[in-house]
C-alpha cells in the first residue's frame, strides 16, 4: 500500500537554480503556487473583460467574491479597515485556491506545508504589529495592559497578554496546516483501503472517501475563510484599540 504521507513530499522540478546561498529551483510546491495565482488572475480577467449592467455568470461570481469579502471586513474590522481590502481579498483567494486545487487527484496541496502557512501568518502578524505602531505610536503597547486590574497583578497579566499575543501566528498557521494535512492523509488512507480490500470489501471505504471528499471541500473553504477572518480581527485590534 502506498505511503499516505508520500503526497506531502516536496521535490525539485527542472534545472536547479542557485543565486548566492538561496536555492531558487522550481519545486512542485512552487509550481502549484504559480498555478493558483494564475487561476485567480484568469478568473478575474475573464470575469471583468466584458463588464455589463446585466452581468454574465463569471461576473456574478466575481462580484459575489468581492461582496463576500467586503462584508466580512466590514463586520469584523469595521469602517477603518477598508484600505486593507485588497490584501485580505488576495490572501483569502490565494489560500482558497491552493486548498481547492490540492483536492484534485495527483495535485499537491501547498497549504499542507507548515512553512508556507507560517510565512503567511508571520506576514500578517508583523504587518499588523507595524500598522498598530504606525497608527497609535507607543500607546499601541496598551493592548498588553488589561484595564481595571489591581496594580500588584499587573506584571503577571502583562506577561500573559504578551504570550497570548505572540501565540497568534502559531495558532493561525498550525490550524490551516493541520487541517489540510489531516484531511489529505485521511483521504489517502481510505483510498489505500479501497485498493487493498478489492472489489468485494472496498465499497465501504470507498463510500467513506466520497463523504470525506465532500467534507474536505468544506474544510478547504472554511479554513481559508477562518484565516481571512482572523486576519481581520487582528487588524481590528490594531486599528481600533478598545480600552
Amino acid at each position: 500500500m502506498a505511503n499516505p504521507m508520500q503526497q506531502f513530499e516536496v521535490y525539485k522540478i527542472g534545472p536547479s537554480l542557485q543565486i548566492g546561498n538561496i536555492d531558487l529551483s522550481l519545486t512542485n510546491s512552487s509550481i502549484f503556487m504559480f498555478t493558483s495565482a494564475a487561476f485567480i488572475l484568469v478568473f478575474f480577467f475573464l470575469g471583468t473583460k466584458n463588464v455589463s449592467t446585466i452581468p454574465g455568470k463569471l461576473q456574478i461570481l466575481n462580484e459575489l467574491v468581492f461582496n463576500f469579502i467586503a462584508k466580512m471586513i466590514d463586520e469584523t474590522a469595521g469602517y477603518k479597515a477598508k484600505n486593507y481590502f485588497p490584501f485580505i481579498l488576495t490572501l483569502f483567494l490565494f489560500i482558497l485556491t491552493m486548498n481547492m486545487i490540492g483536492l484534485f487527484p495527483y495535485a499537491f496541496t501547498v497549504t499542507s506545508q507548515i512553512i508556507v502557512t507560517l510565512s503567511f501568518a508571520l506576514i500578517i502578524f508583523i504587518g499588523v504589529t507595524v500598522i498598530g505602531f504606525a497608527k497609535h505610536g507607543v500607546s499601541f503597547l496598551k493592548i498588553f495592559l488589561p484595564s481595571g486590574i489591581p496594580i500588584f497583578l499587573l506584571p503577571l497579566l502583562v506577561v500573559i497578554e504578551v504570550i497570548s499575543y505572540l501565540s497568534r501566528p502559531v495558532s493561525l498557521s498550525v490550524r490551516l496546516f493541520a487541517n489540510m494535512l489531516a484531511g489529505h492523509t485521511m483521504l489517502k488512507v481510505f483510498g489505500g483501503f479501497v485498493v487493498s480490500l478489492g472489489i468485494i470489501g472496498g465499497w465501504l471505504p470507498f463510500s467513506f472517501s466520497v463523504l470525506l471528499t465532500a467534507l474536505e471541500i468544506l474544510v478547504a473553504f472554511l479554513q481559508a475563510y477562518v484565516f481571512a477572518v482572523l486576519s481581520c480581527i487582528y487588524l481590528n485590534d490594531a486599528l481600533n484599540m478598545h480600552h
Partner: peptide, 11 residues
C-alpha cells in the same frame, strides 16, 4: 459602529 460584530463561526 467601530466595535464591530464578529463572525461567530470563524471565532
Amino acid at each position: 459602529k467601530l466595535s464591530p460584530k464578529n463572525t461567530q463561526l470563524g471565532i
